[in-house]
Structures are given as C-alpha cells and as structure tokens.
Design a protein around this nucleic acid. Structure first.
Length: 275
DNA sequence: AGCTGGTCCTGATGGC
DNA sequence: TGCCATCAGGACCAGC
C-alpha cells in the first residue's frame, strides 16, 4: 500500500546501502508483474555501478550510466536489503539485485508492481510513457495553489477523484487524499470546478503538510523499513479521517463518514467538510 | 465471499 | 459534425 511517503522512505533507506555498489547478478524469478519484467536484465546490469536512486511520483528510479531501472511497488511491493548472501527466497520474492555486500530483494504478493528498463539511448527517463503524463511533484516549488487551480479548473469530476488521478500533482494516494481534503476542509464530493483559488491554496498546502508529516513519521522507522526482518507498517500514526468511519472527528466531534467514489473508499467529516 | 490497494487501458460521454 | 479532453469502469492479484 505504498503511497509517496512510503516510496520516499524506501528510497532514503535503500540509498546508503546500495548506491555506488556494482551489480553482480540480477535474478528474476517471476516476470508477471503489472508489466512483464523484461528479459535480459542480468546481462544489462551485471558489472554496472548504481549511481543513485531517484523518485518520480511513486516510481523509484535506479540510475545507471547507460539507463534507468524503473520500479513501482504497486500496492503490496517492498524492497528489502539483506546482507549477502541473502537467505533463500520465499514465496513472492520476485527479483534480487545482487551486489558485493548486500542483496536488494523485491517482494510483491499481489504483483501490481513493476520493474522496467529505460535505456539512456532512448532519451530522458522523464519521457518514459509511464512517467510522461505525471503531474508535478508535491514538493516542487512550482506546485502551488495557482498550479492546482489551473490544473483542476473546468473539471467536473469530484475533487477527490481529480486529486487522486495524479495528472495535476503526483503522490496523493487514496489515504492521503482523504487526509488532505480533511485538513483543507473541503468536501470530497465537490466538483473540482467549484474550487476557487483560495481553497486551492489551502488544498495545496494541506497536501504538502500531510505528505511531509507522513515522511517524517516513516523516517522514524527508517531502520526497520528495509531491514531483512521486514517492513514497517503504515506511517500515518493518527489519521484525521481515514479508516475512522463511525468514530468522532478530532476537531468537532461529528461522526466520520465513509462513502465510495469510483470504487474507492473516501472518509470525511460531514461538518468540517461541509462545502 | 467481499473488500482492499494503484495504476493503465478501453470505451463512453461531454463540450466546443 | 468531428475532435479532443475528460470520465467511468474493468482488469490485474493475494490475503484476510
């Protein structure tokens, strides 16, 4: 269930352990992820130095001189780092990136994740079809109320669904979407075109705050997150609304509601988010 | 059994 | 009318 904060925390946890390492072997045990894992990764990466790990939205970008390994965790994916040699793979351990001292292992029970190769010869990785349509990063200085306003104006769908779509701003998954709207005091059912510049400003701010806090909360569990022992759970220590149907709002005491929007659950406070 | 999670694609709809 | 952007829904999975 990784959203942007979990992916960012993963990136930060992986970086000191694998960056500058040289790949000795890539072992793909299961190709059937969200997109098929390409053949030939082992030949492609063997002997190559990992230069860095970046992130775009929820995609991790493993940079090599000759291209980028793009990984997405889907809903159940986890990267773990083991000291070499890694223990025997278990069910759902689909890929190993073997370095001299450590092994990065991708585990993904539901196989909604992805692992793809983008050759430097094909141009900037930003232009990869999966990345090209993504909205602005929430921590990009260009992301603002004005950007949000420009991006959602005229769109008739509910603000919850427009925000979730990721073509205006990335990284706001189902959980943090509910949380951001709660923090901004905006009704998730409201048509996006009803939002003016003032509420867009509040929402942009709320998105940044919610994600920042989640990353910080995840940072406190950083050591465990990529340890061999396994993943930390979810970061959100105390949700304002998510998962709190029937409980009372921490601000006003009203009972939190759960509704379905596009087959996804949305939680909100009917009083704090009246309009 | 039904529900959950995040894209990505297809086909439908709406506005100009 | 056609074109384009947007929208809704289905598909992909395993675990509880």
């Amino acid at each position: 269930m990784p959203e942007l904060p979990e992916v960012e925390v993963t990136r930060r946890a992986l970086t000191p352990r694998v960056v500058a390492g040289v790949v000795r072997e890539v072992c793909v045990r299961e190709h059937r992820l969200r997109h098929p894992v390409p053949d030939g990764l082992d030949a492609l990466l063997r002997g190559r130095e990992l230069l860095g790990i970046g992130r775009r939205g929820k995609y991790l970008l493993w940079r090599f001189a000759h291209g980028t390994l793009i990984s997405h965790l889907g809903m159940s994916g986890v990267w773990r780092v083991h000291d070499a040699p890694a223990p025997p793979p278990r069910r759902h351990d689909h890929v190993d990136l073997v370095f001299d001292e450590v092994v990065g292992r991708l585990t993904d029970p539901r196989r909604f994740g992805a692992l793809l190769w983008h050759s430097a010869a094909a141009g900037e990785v930003e232009n990869h079809p999966l990345l090209a349509g993504l909205g602005l990063e929430p921590f990009d200085p260009r992301f603002s109320g004005a950007w949000l306003y420009a991006g959602i104006r005229g769109r008739s769908a509910a603000i919850k669904q427009v925000l979730l779509a990721g073509d205006v701003v990335v990284g706001v998954g189902n959980i943090y979407c509910s949380e951001s709207l709660f923090r901004a005091g905006i009704n998730p059912k409201l048509s996006a075109r009803r939002l003016g510049p003032v509420r867009c400003e509040r929402l942009a701010q709320a998105v940044r705050e919610v994600l920042t806090q989640a990353i910080e909360a995840g940072g406190s569990t950083l050591k465990d997150f990529v340890s061999a022992e396994g993943a930390a759970g979810y970061f959100m220590l105390d949700a304002g609304v998510y998962g709190r149907e029937g409980e009372t709002c921490r601000v006003c005491g009203t009972v939190i509601r759960r509704i379905m929007q596009g087959q996804r659950a949305t939680y909100y406070c009917p009083h704090c988010q009246r309009h």
